[in-house]
Design a protein around this nucleic acid. Structure first.
Lengths: 217, 217
DNA sequence: TCATATTTTTTATTGTAATTACAAATTTAT
DNA sequence: ATAAATTTGTAATTACAATAAAAAATATGA
């Protein structure tokens, strides 16, 4: 029981974990106590055997003849994902997208706290978003020294993204969540997660134009 | 030369195409005329051989001893992705996220046109976003009959997402771009592209908490 | 309590994607 | 015009991920 994870786990596996957890959370809300890999297969769209193998990378969370305890497995996956702690986040670029993410994190993602927001636009500097005052981007580095964050979120234009990334790298940030429609270079050891909406939309266009509804992104 | 694509191409390949095209576009802007798979490898992070194999799924776009013509390849990938036509899009849910996407599509994505926007919030209905008036969600179905769209974009809360998806399915939409943090069921033949920000953030947390900077999402 | 149904765990197999290696074509330099 | 260097296209190999099968453990019901 519990957390072996010796060898490196493939990213394919890791990217399925949040979905498992999301579905387990819904089951918890519904009061479901136990679930089999077969039932989880129907809910997730992955094969039962893949689900079992994925989970077994980390430990034997199930019980033969019984299945998985919903609440227990939900907790275990949370631990694996590192959700048993709090992440402080800074949003850079406070346009609609930055604000959307601030709202989202504030209201729906416990464990992820937006602690500071930055922009260059004088019209935005000073205003308060969910109780966080937007600060001048030129002060970001000193602000991050006083109030360090774990995650920097880039919601700027393409042109500013690399500059922001550089400053975040100097600011002792551990991970960057990049929404700017460009690739950025980050320092050694930095965790980078890109959300390339443009690529996603182009992929959607491919499937539409080829009449190929290969569902599930 | 040009567009074989007989057998089904794996989604892994398709999801790399937008990045190739994005980088080729930047090269075009810089005035670069030709490029080798090796140089593309350095720019994309994929191996040169993988790039050659990816492109060869669709045809021999390169020339031995010379490489690829930047503008030509950019155009070919555009054609493969189905970007040689226009896509009409409707945004459902006009909060910050919906507005962010409206702005983004309007200013940066030629070929993708936002033609209508819908919301249930009386404070938003009637206002104009980039010249598009936000309409009452209850009128969406009749609006889509008069002015059909190719793509429906779901920017609502989790709770409303399935209802929106159902109505889009009845509205002759070809593809759904889903930003709601939940899985939705769509009708047969519908193309679905999910952008699960929650899953993306949880994945980022995994790599941070495991000190595993396996760069590139 | 025992036999049977479940259902996970673990191992083996298959299938798919990525890499390597090399032959064929082209360009560049002499 | 010829040789050397470049670079793609593709076949062969390797590595990896997904599936299936076998084995072990537990639960259920008579």
């Amino acid at each position: 029981m519990g957390m072996k994870a010796n060898g490196k786990i493939s990213t394919a596996v890791i990217r399925r974990l949040p979905k498992y957890r999301r579905i387990l959370q819904e089951l918890m809300v519904k009061g479901v106590e136990r679930i089999s890999s077969n039932e989880l297969s129907a809910l997730t769209g992955f094969t039962a055997s893949q689900i079992r193998q994925d989970l077994n990378n980390f430990g034997g969370f199930g019980q033969q003849g019984y299945g998985y305890n919903v609440e227990g497995l939900h907790g275990q996956i949370g631990n694996i994902l590192g959700l048993d702690r709090e992440y402080r986040m800074a949003i850079v670029g406070c346009g609609n997208l930055g604000q959307a993410i601030a709202n989202y994190a504030t209201y729906y993602k416990t464990g992820f706290v937006v602690t500071s927001m930055f922009d260059v636009n004088p019209k935005l500097i000073g205003i308060s978003i969910n109780g966080i005052e937007v600060q001048d981007y030129s002060e970001m580095q000193s602000c991050l020294e006083k109030n360090p964050v774990d995650i920097g979120i880039i919601c700027t234009t393409k042109g500013s993204a690399q500059d922001v990334a550089d400053k975040l790298c100097n600011g002792n940030v551990k991970g960057i969540w990049n929404f700017a429609p460009t690739d950025i270079n980050v320092c050694e050891g930095m965790v980078l997660e890109n959300v390339h909406l443009s690529d996603s939309l182009n992929t959607l266009a491919y499937f539409i134009s080829h009449n190929d509804p290969r569902n599930e992104a």
